[in-house]
Amino acid sequence: MQLNAGCELSFEAKAPTPLILMLRPRSGAGQWIVREEYQITPAVNVTEFTDMYGNLCQRVIAPTGPFSIHFSATVQTANEIDVAPGAPYTPVEELPDDVLHYTLPSRYCQSDQLGDLATDITKESEPGYDQAEAIRLWIHTNVKYQYGTSDASTSAVDTANKRVGVCRDFTHLGISLCRALNIPARMVVGYLYQLDPMDLHAWFEAYVDGRWFTFDATQENPRGNRITVAYGRDAADVAFTTQFGPMDLNNMKVWVEAADKDEDEKKPDGVTTDSASVGSNNQNEASQ
């Protein structure tokens, strides 16, 4: 399916503020970028680079005062995601070099503290894909999705204890439990068609049988029509904005619609979302 997706961000900068943005998807597995538009107001110089995970990032300096970003794209997406019950575990010694670090604990994914829970959840599962799916299903069944129950400091251990959170928290927990079993896992952020409530979304991928598979603990069944924007170890690597100074995000809107208007409902004006659901990094606050 072709999807029209995008977001609008409105900021207020109290002083000139450097920003790193991560809003542009790129063509790859399961998606082809047909068209994209990027508008920044007021106009500023933009430089782009590719980070260590292959994500497209933009560097800007927001001037004092109102500052807004509009991004939209038309993307050809896969209608279904691959599933592979019974796909075998890939031994650590056979992992590619660029996958190996996804077995290690990271800032929000303390896999070294969740081994007992991971073992208990997967005790009846065959090593590999079935373990990752058992983890996804356990989170979906046992963790309540609720806005306002977590923040930028919430970790996988916190979510395992409180059993409540949003997609970011579900994802961190899924990643951590997989890594506790030496299954490489990474965070993915982007858009999901017909997500309810609409927002930027997060899910995880696990590496089994020599490739990555998608797992989304917020959804009851496997769903395609996803647009991946970024990959990383956890939310610290995939924040849609990282700011280095005094700047407030006042509003964010996100939309995803079928590009063929006859195929689905008409495009909404955009849904105001909770920016904490995927997250942004505020380096100014973190350093205080």
Rank of each mutant, 00 (worst) to 15 (best):
Q2G: 08
C7A: 12
L9E: 03
A13T: 02
T17P: 13
T17E: 14
T17Q: 10
L19P: 04
L19S: 02
L21E: 02
M22H: 01
L23G: 07
G28R: 02
A29F: 09
G30N: 13
I33C: 08
E36H: 06
E37A: 12
E37L: 09
Y38D: 15
Q39M: 08
P42A: 09
N45M: 13
V46P: 07
V46L: 14
T50K: 03
D51E: 07
C57K: 00
C57H: 00
V60L: 14
A62K: 00
F67D: 05
F67G: 04
F67M: 05
I69Q: 02
S72M: 06
S72T: 07
A73L: 05
T74L: 11
D82P: 13
Y89D: 11
P91V: 13
V92F: 14
E94V: 09
D97F: 12
D97H: 05
L104E: 14
L104K: 06
S106E: 04
S106G: 07
C109M: 04
D112Q: 13
L114G: 12
D116M: 14
T122W: 04
E124A: 15
E124T: 13
E126R: 08
Q131N: 08
E133T: 03
W138S: 12
I139D: 03
H140D: 09
T141E: 15
T141V: 01
N142E: 14
K144R: 14
Y145D: 06
A152V: 07
T154W: 01
A156T: 02
V157F: 04
V157S: 08
D158W: 01
T159L: 13
T159Q: 06
T159W: 04
K162E: 14
K162M: 15
V166F: 02
D169G: 12
F170R: 01
G174W: 00
I175P: 05
L177C: 11
C178S: 08
R179N: 07
A180D: 09
L181M: 13
N182Y: 11
N182A: 15
I183F: 08
P184H: 10
A185L: 04
R186K: 12
V188M: 07
V188S: 06
V189G: 04
Y191A: 09
D196A: 08
P197V: 10
P197D: 09
L200F: 14
W203T: 03
W203P: 03
E205N: 10
V208W: 03
D209H: 11
T214Q: 10
D216N: 05
D216W: 00
G224C: 13
N225K: 03
R226K: 08
A230D: 04
Y231K: 00
V238L: 06
T242S: 14
F244A: 10
P246C: 06
P246N: 11
M247G: 05
D248K: 01
N250L: 15
N250Y: 06
V256K: 00
K261F: 15
K261V: 15
D262E: 15
D262P: 05
D264S: 15
D264G: 15
K267T: 14
P268W: 01
D269E: 04
G270L: 02
V271K: 01
T272I: 09
S275P: 14
S275Y: 04
N284K: 00
E285F: 08
E285V: 10
